[in-house]
Design a protein around this nucleic acid. Structure first.
Lengths: 215, 215
DNA sequence: GTCTATATCTCGATAGAC
DNA sequence: GTCTATCGAGATATAGAC
């Protein structure tokens, strides 16, 4: 039995080369998935040799796991810091939607990578979540679920199943980044000014969550 | 220049073998993507020989394109038939959400395949959409966009950007099928009775779209 | 139409010079 | 640490018997 520290390695992104590999791997894995990605393509995009990938990360599996685990934990901790703040739930929600969309706008590879992982059964993601539960340090998602439960108890929200709301928030914020190629084909105005579109997207999501769309 | 009919072949799913290949290919492509999929795995899952794949579909590329184009058009026509009906927009919306979730519950591979295509830049999907626009026979999504625009004009809905609403509907209905592995890890109750969960999911989405969540 | 066998190429990974 | 060269496994695709 291998210890978890071997399956999900922690590491410092020390050298410049390592950072370049990491970013290139994130990009390629997020587009092609673990199996579809080619080490040669990652090497090319990092501007280095294929042999260097193995020098730094030993194998494709370890490279993938490293990238996924690192990216997820940094996203989780950011979300935790938003949801842990005090104040009305709907205000926290509004901040979270804004932060979440900004994060994905700055690094759209993360959402794609997370989706690829899920399409494949999410073995690594599930292990990380389980690990977080075991160590007691609840991971990002659980904090949101707890917050929703409390907001319903306090009468801030209508009765709502926490996991349902979580899926809705996730779907509304992330779906654009997943389906961008199709959406820009349907509405070319999006590509004309993506930043403006994303600001309207934030307001739309908050609007729907707060009051819905019926007149 | 190759004619479109060569790029996106139409065909009848005549023989049983062909149907088996088609279903197996859909399954494997939806999990691994076009590049990650293995012809051997498709053959195994179809219960036939690897050579038969090439006999029926010539190449991996053509097999992928065939499967994607066929699946998309059948989904589009189903959605069109729902959105084309008369009556209040919010009722049409409610029916659409129900139908959409039922469709994906019956065939979850379709959503996964569509996502894989988008993560890869959606070259095939974009071509299909463009083709639909050229031939004048507006494809599924455009009908929804038009319907939203009219509902806002008629005062049925609050002012809302059609593409924003479309992304929200898509995100809320489809996200669960994409992220199921993670969600069941967060809430084991989902796996206990998925059908019941999906019914609650429908009601939640309608609730959020109609009136939001604030008390 | 369906199979076996095989050609041809590409992939992940390593050896070894520098 | 970084490269070139290469090995061996596994990939797509085809040839050809039945």
């Amino acid at each position: 039995m291998t210890p978890p520290s071997d399956l999900i390695p922690s590491f410092d992104l020390a050298s410049e080369t390592e950072k370049a590999i990491f970013q290139a791997a994130l990009e390629v894995f997020s587009r092609k998935g673990k199996d579809g990605a080619r080490m040669q393509e990652i090497a090319d995009q990092a501007g280095i040799n294929k042999a260097m990938l193995h020098y730094y990360f030993r194998s494709k599996d370890l490279l993938y796991t490293s990238v996924f685990a690192h990216v997820m934990s940094s996203f989780f901790s950011k979300l935790e810091s938003v949801m842990a703040k005090p104040g009305p739930f709907l205000d926290r929600l509004e901040e979270m939607v804004g932060v979440y969309i900004d994060m994905h706008a700055a690094q759209p590879e993360v959402a794609r990578l997370w989706v690829q992982e899920n399409l494949n059964g999410a073995p690594v993601a599930r292990q990380i979540l389980q690990q977080g539960l075991q160590t007691g340090a609840g991971p990002g998602p659980h904090i949101l679920l707890e917050r929703v439960r409390k907001a319903v108890d306090d009468g801030e929200l209508q009765p709502v199943e926490p996991i349902q709301l979580m899926i809705s928030i996730l779907g509304m914020t992330v779906m654009f980044f997943i389906s961008q190629p199709t959406m820009t084909a349907l509405d070319p105005a999006i590509s004309a000014d993506t930043a403006a579109f994303l600001n309207r997207r934030k307001q739309h999501i908050i609007q729907v969550l707060r009051h819905g769309i019926s007149q």
